[in-house]
Amino acid sequence: MSRMESLRKAYGEQLADSGANDQRIVTLEADLGKSTMSCLFQDKQPERYFQVGIAEQNMASIAAGLALTGKVAFINSFAVFATGRAYDQIRSSIAIPRLNVKICGSSAGLSDFGDGKTHQSIDDIALMRVLPNMTVLSPVDAVETKQMVEAMVDHDGPAYIRINRNDLPVLTDGNEPYYIGKMSRMRDGKDVVVFASGVMVSLALEAAEQLESHGISIRVVNVSTIKPLDTKALASYCEGMKGVVTAEEHSIHCGLGSAIAEALGSSRLPITFLGINDTFGTSAKNYDELMERYGLTSEGIVKKVHEVLEA
């Protein structure tokens, strides 16, 4: 069992570290700093930390103004509010002019299990992925989160990162360089390739163990850059496979699975999709229980692998 670590803490720590070395970095918060962990930046760089109150739309456009004046602006909120509440501001003020605004969607997916459907983001990838000029990132663990924050600072243009609220297994060691667009093979196999993001990667690795005992070998790929999608790597990971499974903690529509289906287009490979099946979330007493409710489990992935092999 891998050790568990907090992605949001890693995010805040790296933001504070990067901010110490780069005076261009400013951070904006809409009163959720102790959840998003932007508070760690505030502790180190209070003069470059702007608390804008509970006003995500204003925050996005203020960040645009800061970026227009030479700053690299990180804006922070829960994923639902960061993307949905401020969608037009991101579209018009930030994405059209390709500004250096970095959007942190925290408590993403179902990870804010207790707060229910208004606070659970099943549509943030969809909203950000459809925007021209936007980069969409979904880190697999705390280590990759830190690497991504550094890459976001260096990236010239807007980027969105969705961050899980709960501690997740550490699956990467950080020894390999990270770059935006990277897609990593976490386990090799010969029958089915599973493209997963975020928490679903570790569940896919568990599914691989279960399937191995049934004589089915699966390749697990961590798609932590959802946009731009590395279509060449995608095609090469599909070579020799009997089918493709996608797994994401997001609506089945317009997220990772859709991105991969679009990219594979004319491929004859059978494909099945695991995600939240066109419904909003609900409150639960813990994260595992909620994930189970929507079938986002290793068993769910096993089922999809069987389905694709039968297709």
Binding site: S61, I62, A64, G65, L66, T69, K71, D88, S93
Partner: peptide, 24 residues
């Protein structure tokens, strides 16, 4: 200086510019 047209956003953009100018 900015992309505007979707109404209501220009004053917020200006606030960001003013903050950056003051920082600098």
């Amino acid at each position: 200086e900015a992309v505007t047209g979707s109404l209501g956003q220009g004053l917020s953009i200006s606030v960001g510019m003013a903050l950056a100018l003051r920082l600098d």
